[in-house]
Design a protein around this nucleic acid. Structure first.
Lengths: 145, 145
DNA sequence: TTCCCTGCAAAAGGTTTGCAGTATG
DNA sequence: CATACTGCAAACCTTTTGCAGGGAA
C-alpha cells in the first residue's frame, strides 16, 4: 500500500466486507496518520483533529475506538517507545525499524534487508508464523553525544 | 553481569556512589526480577513480594519507585508487548530478543549474532551511539496456528 | 428501518505524588 | 543527626465502557 487514496479505499473495502459502517471519523483518523510526519499518540491524533477539522465534533473515545479498529484490520501499527506510551503510524508507509535518541526523542527510520531475512529464518526455526515485528535501537544521536 | 550476588553487589555499589541509601525494598525488587522466569509487570512484582515476603510490608508506590530507579541505573530493562503494558526483566540475564505469540502470549527468547552486528553497523552509519535495543517478532506459535 | 457508530460522562486501570513517619549512613 | 526512603492515600492521566441519540446501509 502506498498512498492515501489507496488506504482510504482499503478501509472502505474492509468495512464493507465485515458488514460494518463507513464513517467520517474513521476516515479522518486514518488520514491524520497517513499525513503525519511523526508517530502520534491517541491524544495527539485527537488534538490534530480538533485543530484541523474544526467542523468535526469528534470525541476522544471515538479516536481510541477508531485506532483500535484500524490496528485490528492492519491499516495502522502501534509501537511503544520507553515511557512515552503507545504511538501509532500508518501502514501506508513502507516497513521500517527505528533508531531512537533517548536524549532529544529524535527518531530515524531505517531498513536492513539482511536483518529482515534473518528474522524470517529465526521465526521459521522456532515454528512461528510472523505477522509483524518491531525493532528499536536506543541511544544518543550525533547532536546529543 | 551473570548472577544474583553480583547484581546485588552492583546495586550496593551504585547506591553508594550516588550517596543514596541501600534499602531492603530495592534489593527485594531486584532479586524478584533476577529469579523470575517471565517478564513481570509492576503489579506482578508487587504480588510476588506480597506472597514470598510476607514479613515485608511494601507498598505499590515503592515498587514503582524501585523499578524506575533500577531501570535508570541499568540493572533492569523494561519492554512493552502490544497491549500488555510495561514489563520488566533483570539485566543479569544475557541479552536476547523476543518472539511473541499474539494468541497465547508465549514468549521465546533468542539471539542472533549477525543481527546484533548489523544493528551496530546501522547505528554507526547514522552516527548514533547505541545504549540499548529491543526487537520483537510477533506472530503465532506452533500450537496456535 | 435496522443496528452500528458516535459523543458524552462516568468508571476503570495504571502510575505518580504529597506527606508524615522511619531507617540508613 | 541529617535526609533519603517508605507506606498510605489521594491525585492524576490514559483508556475503556454504558447509554441514549444519530447516521450509514
Amino acid at each position: 500500500m502506498i498512498n492515501s487514496e489507496e488506504a482510504i479505499e482499503e478501509l472502505k473495502k474492509i468495512v464493507k466486507q465485515k458488514g460494518l459502517k463507513y464513517t467520517e471519523q474513521r476516515e479522518i483518523v486514518l488520514s491524520i496518520l497517513i499525513h503525519a510526519e511523526d508517530h502520534l499518540s491517541a491524544e495527539e491524533v485527537y488534538n490534530e483533529i480538533k485543530t484541523k477539522h474544526t467542523d468535526s465534533n469528534i470525541g476522544i473515545a471515538t479516536v481510541y475506538r477508531a485506532l483500535s479498529f484500524l490496528e485490528e484490520v492492519d491499516l495502522i501499527t502501534s509501537i511503544t517507545f520507553g515511557s512515552d506510551g503507545k504511538k501509532y503510524e500508518s501502514n501506508a508507509k513502507s516497513h521500517h525499524d527505528h533508531l531512537i535518541c533517548t536524549e532529544c526523542g529524535k527518531i530515524v527510520e531505517f531498513l536492513d534487508d539482511e536483518i529482515e531475512k534473518r528474522q524470517e529464518r529465526i521465526a521459521k526455526k522456532n515454528k512461528f508464523k510472523i505477522t509483524n515485528h518491531s525493532m528499536q535501537l536506543y541511544g544518543t544521536c550525533e547532536d546529543c553525544q
